[in-house]
Design a protein around this nucleic acid. Structure first.
Length: 370
DNA sequence: AAAGGGGCCAACCGCGGAGTC
DNA sequence: AGACTCCGCGGTTGGCCCCTT
């Protein structure tokens, strides 16, 4: 395994797979002397290796506290949740999984979890539902195989929607919207990472992932998605740090101006620390900017939230996510689609969901509701 | 049974940050 | 302040293994 089997570098130091004898030498030395300096360790331990190779071998394989074997479902869930928050920070993820190394987690992600998410129709980079047509085909197959009547989407069973690619796209757009809001800096002012780890799910498909389907079977389908939002928004008596929300929203409709959001460039392009040693990544995934500009689709919509464009003052050609929403709604020849959602979510009065929607889409909601 | 191909994963590479002089 | 060294991290590689044909 590895590269350059039995090879040696220009200094005559051995590279490639470790032999049992070398392993034993390393274990013996570290057991009695520790590893204060990896640079000097190989010579002192009688190993013809570079210090880096010794460190890697120890930390990834020989360390006594390493847990080997298959990843548990709980570990899988943790990895997925952590990755959705901090991205490819394997060493950070590893600190939350005792006995697992960053290398092991990274390999497991690339060989198992990534594919698993893809097969579930989730983009492993953004942790959002995928929106390409190939995926829609896969998703429809997945849905078809999984008790279609109940499993179309978190909201599908209640809305009794017809299932075709068009509806799936709309459902996904709705989910994307919810997730976008969920991950927007405005909605995450409290930066409580417990929102993301453990009992809170970032993506609405997690029920599929963990096999519980809790969200999919939820009796309040719209709320199922909305519960991912900051509870402050779901609460009619929102906490004080949301007092500017309405004003901010007005600004958003004008082009998603980060100044209005109070978002600095640094927080968009890098990470910022929070007290629990979890970094909240850029809420707008960088891959958004990779979306091709073609016909109207979700990717195009999301591409308007490219962090680079946040800093641009040129808004003449800006096609905001909210305009896309308007277009989507306008494209619906029959408003009953949206009225169904409204009726459903307003059935339990007073519904937090309807107030949420009124806040987000005041014009549209008022028109439909009247 | 043999060959081919893809998956898996240990190990390497290169970069960047931190510390030291 | 700048140069240098060391360490740690994320990305990538490539040999082994297993499955399929």
């Amino acid at each position: 395994m590895g590269r350059s089997p039995c090879g040696h570098d220009e200094n005559g130091l051995k590279k490639g797979p470790w032999t049992p004898e070398e392993d034993q030498k390393l274990i013996d030395y570290i057991s009695s002397h520790g590893h204060d300096s990896w640079r000097t360790l190989p010579k002192l331990a009688g190993l013809n290796r570079c210090g880096k190779s010794c460190r890697l071998r120890w930390t990834n394989y020989l360390r006594p506290d390493i847990k080997r074997g298959k990843f548990s479902e709980d570990e899988e869930r943790k990895i997925i949740n952590l990755h959705s928050v901090i991205g490819n920070k394997w060493s950070r993820i590893a600190t939350k999984l005792p006995g697992r190394t960053d290398n092991e987690i990274k390999n497991y992600w690339n060989t198992h979890l990534r594919k698993k998410l893809l097969s579930m129709g989730i983009d492993p980079t953004t942790h959002k539902p995928r929106t390409d047509l190939n995926h829609l085909v896969n998703l429809s197959q997945l849905l078809g195989a999984a008790n279609f009547g109940n499993l179309i989407s978190p909201w599908g069973s209640a809305l009794n929607l017809q299932v075709d690619a068009s509806h799936l796209a709309k459902i996904q757009l709705l989910q994307n919207m919810l997730q976008l809001m969920n991950t927007s800096p405005l909605l995450n002012m409290e930066s409580n990472h417990d929102l993301f780890i453990g009992n809170r799910n970032l993506n609405p498909f997690e029920g599929l992932l963990n096999g519980t389907n809790t969200q999919l079977n939820n009796k309040e389908p719209f709320l199922t998605g909305l519960e991912n939002l900051n509870p402050g928004l779901m609460n009619p008596e929102a906490p004080s740090n949301f007092h500017d929300f309405d004003n901010s929203w007005a600004g958003l409709e004008d082009g998603f101006n980060p100044e209005i959001l109070g978002v600095k460039n640094s927080s968009l392009s890098s990470t910022s620390s929070c007290e629990n040693e979890i970094e909240i990544m850029n809420p707008v995934p960088a891959s958004f900017s990779d979306s091709p500009h073609g016909t109207y689709n979700i990717n195009q919509m999301e591409s308007k939230i490219d962090p680079d464009q946040f800093m641009s003052t040129d808004s003449a050609s800006t096609y905001t996510i909210f305009e896309a929403w308007d277009k989507l709604i306008d494209d619906e020849t029959n408003d009953s689609y949206w009225k169904d959602i409204l009726e459903l979510t307003s059935s339990s009065s007073p519904s937090p969901a309807i107030s949420w929607k009124s806040t987000y889409f005041p014009r549209r909601i008022n028109n439909l509701a009247s």
